[in-house]
């Protein structure tokens, strides 16, 4: 492979993957947060129904 501008080509590919990887990590973190919020709410609603 031609080595001219190889460093910037590497930066380009690295940035592309970093953006996508960053998005996937954010997606996974958000999913965990939503799941725990959903579980908490389910417990609260079930608790209130038991009290009735």
């Amino acid at each position: 492979m031609d080595e001219r501008n190889f460093t910037f080509m590497f930066y380009g590919f690295a940035m592309a993957w970093l953006i996508l990887l960053g998005y996937v990590v954010a997606l996974v973190a958000r999913e965990r947060k939503i799941k725990s919020e959903l579980d908490n709410l389910k417990r609260i609603v079930e608790g209130k129904e038991h009290l009735k």
Binding site: M1, D2, E3, R4, N5, F6, F8, M9, G12, F13, A16
Partner: peptide, 14 residues
């Protein structure tokens, strides 16, 4: 390789 751009032209594939 691309004649004038060197390796950087491969960014196009992304």
């Amino acid at each position: 390789d691309e004649a004038s751009q060197g390796a950087i032209y491969r960014i196009m594939y992304f």
